[in-house]
Simulated scan of single mutants.
Amino acid sequence: MPRPREFDQELALDKAMELFWSQGYERTSIQDLVEHTGVHRGSLYDTFGDKNQLFLTCLDRFRQSASARFKMLEGPGEPKEMLVRYFDAVIDSAMNNGSRRGCFVANTAMELGAVDPAISSRIEAYSVDIESRFYTFLLQAQAQNKLRGKHSLRELSRFLVTVRSGLYVLAKTAPDRQTLQDSANVAISLLF
């Protein structure tokens, strides 16, 4: 009979994700994960599989948790104000998450996106999910006759995905919040 697990799997997964997020996949060793999570090597393997499987599980967990921020783009309200609040939250997150480590998925895309098909498919699914959420938001804004411009909703959705990702990347080296805010302001002005 297998021994019951003696650690909080959710907490261990969160700690592993934080380490991968801060250091990247290649720079994170199994020993780093053991030390950071406080979980023995054998228990990590038994629970999550190898390092690659653990990393994939972390990507899945990040995708689930990141979707909460999109709630601010749902429901009634003035679309422009909703997008302003959304980008403010993105900028806050980008500027205030430790060592400005960026977005976990964007970092992964730059490090491993073209190398590992399983990782690439998760990155693509994440991007499609974000695009879909922006599309739904823009559809609502269009129904209220609030959108301006000549681009299709699909084009605008993809543009917003790019702006969002760009803010996280820019935050890694931007001297101040205003640098990111300027980019968000231009994006908002193109839509409303």
Rank of each mutant, 00 (worst) to 15 (best):
Q181I: 07
V115M: 12
A143V: 10
I130H: 08
V128A: 08
P4G: 05
A114W: 14
D60V: 01
D92H: 09
Q9S: 12
S99R: 13
S29R: 07
Q144P: 03
M110C: 02
P117D: 08
I123W: 11
D8E: 11
L191A: 08
G42E: 14
L44C: 09
L147Y: 12
L153M: 09
A187V: 01
S152V: 03
S152L: 03
K15A: 08
M110N: 06
R122E: 09
E111S: 05
N107V: 03
R164E: 10
V84M: 10
E10Q: 07
E18V: 13
E78R: 00
K172E: 01
C103M: 12
R177K: 08
L33C: 03
Q9D: 12
Q178W: 06
F192S: 05
G75R: 11
V161I: 13
L147D: 01
R133V: 01
R27P: 01
V163H: 12
I30E: 13
D8L: 12
I30M: 15
D60E: 12
E81A: 14
K146T: 09
N145Y: 11
P2W: 14
R100S: 04
V161L: 12
P76E: 10
K146Q: 12
H40E: 06
F70V: 01
D8V: 09
A171I: 07
R148S: 15
Q53A: 15
G149A: 05
M82A: 14
S183D: 01
S93P: 01
S165M: 03
R154C: 00
F70T: 00
V186L: 15
S67L: 11
P175K: 08
F134D: 00
L160Q: 08
E10K: 04
L170Y: 11
G166K: 02
S67G: 03
A174K: 06
W21L: 02
A114C: 02
G77V: 15
E35H: 12
F70P: 00
